[in-house]
Design a binder for these strands. Structure first.
Length: 321
DNA sequence: ACATTAACGCGATGAGCCAC
DNA sequence: GTGGCTCATCGCGTTAATGT
């Protein structure tokens, strides 16, 4: 009986040393700053305290955690696996607090909420914009921000809590477990050129004919670009040599309209351009289709969406059913 | 060069006491 | 019971000295 009462507490109660030990907001900010800067003095500077104060904060954290959180190196410090675990959790707690801050601020200001969405170009035009239009009609005071970028950029922005949700693909170099995603659309791409472009004479333009011209492509490593490059490799055609890298659709269109440059864009984008620009730009007819990996509606795992973000997500999902 | 430790200062807080 | 005052304590910051 005596042994029983002396035994370590079980379940959740066995893992509350952080709470009982008095882990503070400052500690969370410090471990994140240490992870980002790799030095106590740099972390201290970002938190506007002296370096010894930071050192004492670290000692407190290690005392509370009951584990060594940092390796002291000749130049700076490095987080131990314990430190990394705490930093990861601390980041998520701080992000949640930021979200709570935003939600309270929305409620106080009576704006009806804010929502930040990111999307790659095609679904931005085809899905995000119509969903936003619909939402705005129902909730005119809702503040909505949209960023159009490549999946690489958007996924990182999502993890940094700068977006509530994105329509993109999870980049190969990021852990898919960090996200919750649902495939919502396939994307086909095509090549575009200005009306009257030399390649447009043929019924089916062979790829090798296009390689000699300037190209406008998304930055290296982006999915659309990789897909296009794979077509060149598969058809045994040397890759274009003169490439302008940009993720800006506007710049792409200007380049294509004002020069002999060829660009790769999604079919949805091309359709929109043809309708809107009065035929200044044409689709290059190819003998094959360019299929890009499907895109998904992606949110950060373990992050609760605000009411405004849920409304936008539902408006998007409604359009694909 | 960078981290830790020691000594100290300052402001916030709570306990104890007293007057009203 | 309430408000005002004093004082001890605590938390958290600093600088200076010391260690790696």
């Amino acid at each position: 009986m005596e042994e029983q009462t002396k035994a370590a507490p079980r379940g959740a109660a066995a893992h509350d040393s952080m709470l009982r030990g008095g882990l503070k907001f400052t500690h969370l900010r410090m471990i994140v700053a240490l992870d980002e800067h790799g030095s106590v003095s740099a972390a201290a500077e970002t938190m506007n305290v002296s370096q010894p104060a930071a050192s004492r904060t670290i000692a407190e954290m290690e005392q509370i955690a009951g584990a060594r959180l940092l390796e002291r190196l000749p130049r700076g410090v490095r987080l131990t696996p314990y430190g990394q675990a705490l930093a990861r959790r601390a980041r998520s707690i701080l992000l949640e607090l930021r979200e709570a801050d935003r939600e309270i601020s929305d409620l106080r200001s009576g704006t009806g909420g804010t929502v930040n969405i990111g999307a790659v170009t095609a679904p931005a035009i085809d899905l995000a914009v119509p969903a936003i239009r619909e939402l705005r009609a129902r909730h005119p005071r809702l503040e909505i921000s949209i960023q159009v970028e490549t999946s690489n950029v958007l996924a990182r922005e999502l993890l940094a809590s700068r977006h509530d949700l994105i329509i993109a693909r999870i980049p190969e170099d990021l852990n898919p477990r960090l996200f919750e995603s649902r495939v919502i659309g396939i994307e086909k791409a095509c090549l575009i050129a200005r009306r009257g472009h030399p390649v447009l004479g043929a019924r089916k333009v062979p790829l090798e004919k296009t390689a000699a011209f300037d190209w406008v492509l998304q930055p290296s490593g982006s999915l659309l670009r990789r897909t296009v490059e794979q077509h060149f490799i598969r058809h045994d055609v040397p890759l274009p040599e003169r490439i302008l890298n940009t993720s800006s659709l506007l710049l792409t269109l200007v380049m294509v309209a004002q020069s002999d440059a060829i660009a790769a864009v999604s079919i949805d984008v091309a359709r929109f351009i043809r309708q809107s620009l009065g035929g200044a730009i044409d689709v290059v007819p190819l003998a094959f289709e360019i299929e890009v990996q499907p895109y998904s509606l992606i949110t950060a795992r373990n992050r609760t969406l605000s009411a405004a973000a849920i409304m936008l997500r539902d408006a998007i999902l409604k359009r694909i059913r």
